[in-house]
Amino acid sequence: MDAIRQFLAMGGYAAYIWPSFILTFAVVIGLAVVSWRRLKREEARLALLEQSRPGRRARSRTAA
């Protein structure tokens, strides 16, 4: 228990060290999540658009 308390105290500099790591990983995770979700959204939009658009073969058959 003492070892954990000592680790968290960071030699008296906890107020500087932990916020540094928390901010860094908030940016790392935040950027990754936003980028990943945007990719999935765009993929879904493209799939929807391609579904609603008749394929080339289908279109030429209608034209014929």
Binding site: A32, S35, W36, R38, L39, E42, E43, L46
Partner: peptide
Amino acid sequence: YFITVLLWRMKAELIGRRIRALS
């Protein structure tokens, strides 16, 4: 991390451009 997120973002941008072109 940079390469991974860059590739995700580039893919999203390319798909976005394709959607615009199709629309």
